[in-house]
Amino acid sequence: MSVKSEYKTTPNNQKAYELKLALSWLALLSGIDSVAKAHTNFKRVIDWSHESGFRYVLHSNGDKNRELILTVLVFHVPE
């Protein structure tokens, strides 16, 4: 998912752009967490301190004892 600017930034609107980007970033991170936790194979969250990453344990289809580790890393790559 990419957050693209709808307009060119200038010194006058730079703060507004940064605020919009930060809010989009927080919404993205929150969305990742809620989607992963709502997955039918979700088991638990792994405690992992990363500012834009998550780790989850899911189970394999048909075998709840076979655990899969899902790591999600999110990066902002400027245009």
Rank of each mutant, 00 (worst) to 15 (best):
M1W: 11
M1L: 12
M1H: 14
M1P: 13
M1S: 11
S2H: 08
S2R: 13
S2P: 04
V3Y: 12
V3I: 12
K4Q: 10
S5R: 15
S5Y: 14
S5V: 06
S5G: 10
S5W: 08
E6N: 13
Y7G: 04
Y7N: 09
K8S: 09
K8N: 13
K8Y: 11
K8T: 10
T9Q: 13
P11W: 14
P11A: 13
N13W: 13
N13V: 08
N13I: 07
Q14A: 12
Q14R: 15
A16Q: 14
A16D: 10
Y17Q: 08
Y17K: 08
Y17C: 05
E18F: 06
E18C: 06
L19A: 09
L19R: 10
L19C: 02
K20E: 12
L21I: 07
L21E: 11
L21Q: 07
A22G: 06
A22W: 10
S24M: 04
W25M: 11
W25N: 14
W25F: 12
W25S: 13
L26V: 09
L26E: 10
L26F: 03
A27P: 03
L28F: 09
L29S: 10
L29K: 15
L29I: 08
S30T: 14
S30K: 15
S30V: 03
G31R: 13
I32R: 10
I32A: 09
I32Q: 09
D33N: 15
S34W: 00
S34Q: 08
S34M: 03
S34N: 07
S34H: 03
A36M: 12
A36G: 03
A36T: 00
K37T: 05
A38G: 04
A38K: 07
H39G: 02
N41P: 00
N41H: 11
N41Q: 10
N41K: 09
F42L: 02
F42S: 02
K43E: 06
K43T: 07
R44G: 05
R44L: 03
R44N: 14
V45W: 07
I46M: 00
I46G: 01
I46P: 00
D47L: 00
D47G: 02
D47S: 03
D47C: 01
H50Y: 06
H50Q: 11
H50N: 11
E51I: 04
S52L: 01
S52W: 06
G53Q: 07
G53T: 05
F54V: 01
R55F: 00
V57E: 08
V57K: 07
V57Y: 05
L58G: 00
L58N: 02
L58S: 00
L58T: 04
L58C: 02
L58M: 02
H59L: 02
H59V: 03
N61L: 06
N61F: 10
D63W: 09
D63H: 09
D63R: 14
K64H: 05
K64M: 02
N65R: 11
R66K: 11
R66I: 01
R66H: 13
R66M: 04
E67Q: 04
E67V: 00
E67K: 07
L68P: 00
L68G: 01
I69E: 02
I69D: 00
I69L: 02
L70W: 03
L70D: 00
T71W: 02
T71I: 05
V72G: 07
L73Y: 15
L73F: 15
L73M: 11
F75R: 15
H76D: 07
H76N: 13
H76I: 04
V77G: 05
V77T: 12
P78R: 09
P78C: 04
P78H: 13
E79T: 09
E79A: 07
E79M: 04
